[in-house]
């Protein structure tokens, strides 16, 4: 019996659906495992996880939760310049209000955690956050987690009226078809490294990729009752180094 701890980033989005799918997916995993699915809302929640899911939701919204830590750092810098007693005031100035997550730097903790080569899976908005390059037809830039050598396009298929369901073709190892649900989905415009493996395609275009310990899907397996991607990710978690 092996323990597997998977965290789901719970800032915003469909995280309960992921939890449910993981619980179902344990039946599809060959090995004897004890799966724990945990909610991640603070940096300390990352401790000891074998894998982390960045669920679908709004990438802009989630990136704001990630960015708040950066604002604190700026606040500290201003504070230090003004003598240390006024750090708090510096934080206040940098954010317009006393920061809500003082002393918590999510991005930094996340990068730290990722450096241990733990498994990560981004669905939809999560794919955007994991991509090294993001093309946007609007000008607002987002803070990205990065790591995955692909270029993605946000809201690539259009607005909600253009959202759709379609059958996907899986690669040989996974085999067969998969029900793809695309909600204001991003697309993968290009694959920028030979390390990236295509797991699923739609009309021959990649819609799911993996690269070492990173997995990404532009669609939502958590909204279907097909749990193969969740099982695939559990297996990825089993293969990551367990440093704890």
């Amino acid at each position: 019996m092996k323990d597997v701890r998977i965290g789901i980033l719970c800032f915003q989005g469909a995280f309960k659906e992921h939890r449910y799918s993981f619980e179902k997916a344990t039946q599809l995993v060959d090995k004897d495992i004890e799966l724990k699915v945990e909610e991640v809302r603070k940096p300390s929640h990352l401790n000891g996880l074998d894998g982390l899911v960045i669920p679908g939701g709004e990438s802009t919204t989630m990136s704001i939760f990630l960015k708040i830590g950066l604002k604190i750092r700026l606040g500290l810098a201003i504070g230090v310049l003004m003598t240390i007693e006024r750090v708090e005031e510096g934080i206040e100035r940098s954010h317009g209000c006393r920061d809500h997550v003082r002393a918590e730097d999510f991005m930094e903790s996340l990068r730290d955690w990722m450096s241990k080569k733990k498994a990560m899976w981004g669905t939809c908005a999560g794919l955007i956050l994991l991509s090294n390059n993001v093309l946007d037809w609007k000008n607002n830039s987002q803070s990205l987690i990065g790591g995955l050598h692909v270029t993605t396009v946000r809201n690539s298929y259009g607005r909600q009226k253009d959202s759709f369901e379609a059958k996907l073709t899986l690669d040989e190892e996974l085999g067969g078809e998969f029900p793809g649900i695309f909600i204001r989905a991003p697309s993968i415009k290009s694959i920028d490294s030979e390390d990236v493996r295509v797991l699923a395609t739609l009309d021959r275009h990649p819609v799911s990729v993996c690269q070492n310990q990173l997995l990404a899907t532009s669609f939502h397996p958590e909204l279907t009752d097909d749990y193969r991607f969740h099982a695939f990710f559990i297996n990825m978690c089993l293969n990551t180094p367990s440093i704890g």
Binding site: C10, G56, G57, I181, I183, L223
Partner: peptide, 8 residues
């Protein structure tokens, strides 16, 4: 699905 993505 769009509503599910708005959750939280």
């Amino acid at each position: 699905g769009l509503a599910q993505m708005a959750k939280g």
